[in-house]
């Protein structure tokens, strides 16, 4: 009988042992980002709580589409967008390796939490978010 109680105790430990404080409250968000009607080739998107009361979420933009994860709530949206324009040296040495050269195409106003005009309310998983940017935005 005693052994059954040990087993029961083990079961209890197994059930309660993993209540760790993780970011399990995040939801998956997907959508599109374009500038002047053209898809943003590569970049990132961040969702910062308007009252800064949650961790910050976000995702990666590829060919105008993004996939990311964020906590729910009212968010300010930050976007960085680049296009690849050839290659550039990693170091100023003769034997330096090369990397892709990126050129920023999204105005800096979209990448500062106090300036960005973009907001969204996330109240669950979304796959239909759409952000249209203006290259002349200030």
């Amino acid at each position: 009988m005693r052994y059954y109680s040990i087993v029961a105790l083990l079961g209890l430990v197994a059930l309660t042992g993993c209540g760790a404080d993780t970011k399990s409250g995040e939801v998956k968000v997907q959508g599109t980002v374009s500038i002047d009607g053209q898809p943003v080739p590569t970049g990132s998107i961040s969702f910062v709580a308007v009252d800064k009361s949650t961790p910050t979420g976000g995702g990666v933009i590829k060919e105008g589409n993004f996939t990311g994860y964020t906590m729910q709530g009212e968010k300010k949206v930050l976007i960085v967008g680049n296009k690849i324009v050839g290659q550039v040296k990693l170091y100023d040495t003769p034997d330096s390796g090369m990397r892709d050269k990126y050129e920023s195409i999204v105005p800096p106003v979209y990448n500062a939490v106090q300036l960005t005009p973009l907001t969204v309310t996330i109240d669950g998983p979304r796959d239909d978010l759409s952000f249209e940017l203006d290259s002349k935005a200030k």
Partner: peptide
């Protein structure tokens, strides 16, 4: 969950279908 922005990011860290995307997400700038 929001990506780091680095001079160089390995492909798996930019790929939403890879496990690295949830651990070390990244976007090249």
């Amino acid at each position: 969950s929001s990506p780091d922005q680095c001079i160089q990011c390995k492909d798996s860290a930019e790929d939403a279908n890879n496990v690295d995307f949830r651990r070390i997400p990244c976007s090249s700038v």
